[in-house]
């Protein structure tokens, strides 16, 4: 894989030299109150068609009420090489969680 940003799913989709349709990542809001969730990808020549292809492909069974499409090439992802320095330092900050604190017996709504 190339070192450029390759989208949350990681791969392919370049148009370089070929006449293939670019790759789009698709996000669906399954119902009101929930955020958009990545569901997969598809190919489309442009944003308008990507949105429509996304509708036809990923919401055939009423899976969604709202749709995002994002060019896969526009996503910058954290690198697995940086995983340790990115995410491990959060591990020992247990005071960020309410369960870290002791509450005297009988105290409520805290």
């Amino acid at each position: 894989m190339s070192g450029v940003s390759t989208g949350s799913t990681g791969g392919g989709g370049s148009t370089g030299g070929r006449r293939d349709w670019p790759l789009w990542e698709v996000f669906v809001r399954s119902r009101r109150g929930l955020s958009h969730v990545h569901v997969g990808s598809l190919h489309a020549p442009d944003a308008e068609m990507a949105l429509r292809n996304g509708r036809d492909l990923y919401t055939r069974r009423q899976e969604g009420v709202s749709l995002w499409v994002v060019p896969a090439s526009a996503i910058t992802a954290s690198s697995p090489d940086e995983k340790d320095s990115f995410f491990d330092p959060a591990a020992d900050k247990i005071y960020r969680h309410p369960t870290f604190y002791e509450v005297p017996e009988g105290v409520e709504h805290l």
């Binding site: 799913t9 392919g12 598809l42």
Partner: peptide
């Protein structure tokens, strides 16, 4: 087929 090609493309290959 499209879901699966999408999965394959995450491995750095093009559907085409």
């Amino acid at each position: 087929g499209l879901y699966l090609y999408a999965a394959a493309e995450t491995l750095g290959v093009d559907r085409a």
